[in-house]
Design a binder for these strands. Structure first.
Lengths: 72, 72
DNA sequence: AAAGTGGTTATCATATATGATAACCAGTAA
DNA sequence: TTACTGGTTATCATATATGATAACCACTTT
């Protein structure tokens, strides 16, 4: 897998898990303490996330980090 | 879990998986195309890894990304 | 002794993730 | 119409991860 495809897969996974919880991008962003624009960037797979950011998102979604990488 | 404990847990996990494969830090670093000093820093949990770096390490160890976060 | 292996720590420059702001679009409600 | 919600994109400053180098330690081998 190419690295950009990995970013996109992670973004898609976050989007899927977020929608599963029925919350909006801006809600999730608020729970993570950052702006909705950044959440959009993340879900679009436009950034090479750090573990800290993944951790914030997982905490906000109340899931484990491994849930993000399930089947990746 | 505090964020620094997460970094340390990930570093420990990488160390464990590396030793399981019976390779040295410097070998793993070489496979990842970076210096052994950086590998030491990573295993010590002194850095907030990016996905790209995790990906390089997993590729070098021939494991899945989710293996790094197993039980974390 | 000298050389090699495995690992740690400090330091630096450079690339880039993050956090923030603003402008924008589409759809819906008042 | 206006206002609100949900999302996207561009841009910027600042913080920091990465990549690299060097010095160092302990241990083993020659």
């Amino acid at each position: 897998m190419k690295i950009n495809d990995l970013y996109i897969a992670i973004g898609n996974r976050i989007k899927y898990l977020r929608e599963e919880k029925g919350i909006s991008q801006q809600d999730l962003a608020a729970r993570c303490d950052f702006e909705k624009s950044n959440m959009s960037r993340i879900e679009a797979g436009k950034t090479n996330l750090t573990i800290k950011t993944v951790y914030k998102i997982c905490s906000a979604l109340n899931i484990k980090i491994s849930d993000i990488f399930y089947d990746i």
